[in-house]
């Protein structure tokens, strides 16, 4: 079976600093991988390279056997790349065009991707919004009249409108209130199951990654330190850094002192 997404040895430096160094992974069809790390881990840079917003210094990205060029020229190539990977960003307040209603935003995506019939587009918009739990009222609304959770769902619908093979979520739930975050997490697990889309879930929150993903790749200062199935990683972390991350999550009987001591020792 061909891998849905195959990433080999991605590398990116800015000036003298290495942002991403030697990141490789494969994603099976319908798989979900968590890219876990803290600030400066290179997880967001990796996400941006996947969708072509940053050009890797070296390494390759292959979707369904087709290598994605770093530079895309021409309309057909752009649309093909768009169909390979889409992304949802962190900030629900800046990720939608403030001038357009949610419906108009989705309509633009569908038109770009060759859906010429207006009636068919309207039906598809309703279907997409339904998938993320939004309705006609939200379709007619401007982003500023929606809550953060509704906007983030609209952003997911916008990405799904392209019908991508892979969806990258760059800290897509971390700006949301807990009660709303859970709604969006359920939307994500549903679309993964129903649409068979591969997910690359970028997050610093291991509990959230566990809920969405089968496996996780832990990044530290741009380098992968551990890449294993999620439950294995949580039960029996190999790397000290993974263990530190795990212990840092507050839980009953939590002892921040011991973590602080370990960090000082490290």
């Amino acid at each position: 079976m061909t891998a849905l997404l195959e990433v080999t040895d991605l590398r990116k430096t800015y000036g003298g600093t290495t942002a991403v160094d030697g990141v490789s992974f494969t994603l099976p069809p319908g798989g979900a991988l968590g890219l876990v790390g803290e600030s400066g881990s290179g997880k967001t840079t990796t996400a941006r390279m996947l969708v072509g917003l940053e050009r890797p210094d070296s390494g390759s990205i292959t979707v369904l056997g087709q290598p994605l060029g770093a530079q895309v020229r021409g309309r057909a190539a752009r649309l093909a790349r768009a169909k390979a990977i889409q992304i949802v960003f962190q900030d629900p307040y800046l990720s939608l065009d403030a001038r357009l209603t949610i419906g108009a935003t989705l309509d633009g995506v569908l038109r770009l991707h060759g859906q010429g019939d207006r009636v068919a587009r309207a039906a598809r918009i309703r279907e997409l919004l339904g998938q993320v739990g939004l309705g006609d009222r939200e379709a007619a609304a401007l982003p500023r009249h929606l809550s953060g959770g509704q906007r983030q769902r609209a952003a997911i619908a916008r990405a799904l409108a392209v019908e991508p093979a892979v969806l990258v979520l760059d800290e897509a739930v971390s700006a949301l209130d807990v009660s709303v975050q859970a709604q969006v997490l359920n939307v994500l697990t549903d679309i993964r199951r129903e649409a068979g889309i591969g997910l690359v879930f970028v997050s610093h929150d291991l509990a959230v990654v566990r809920y969405v993903c089968d496996e996780a790749l832990v990044l530290l200062r741009g380098r992968p330190v551990e890449h294993r199935p999620m439950e294995e990683l949580l039960d029996n972390p190999d790397h000290d850094y993974t263990r530190l991350l795990l212990d840092s999550v507050p839980h009953p009987g939590w002892d921040p002192e011991s973590i602080a001591r370990r960090r000082r020792a490290a």
Binding site: V51, G52, R81, S95, R158
Partner: peptide, 14 residues
């Protein structure tokens, strides 16, 4: 640099 502009580019717009 705002994500909505990035999103347009990722969607495949020129």
């Amino acid at each position: 640099n705002r994500p909505y502009v990035s999103a347009y580019l990722v969607q495949g717009h020129a």
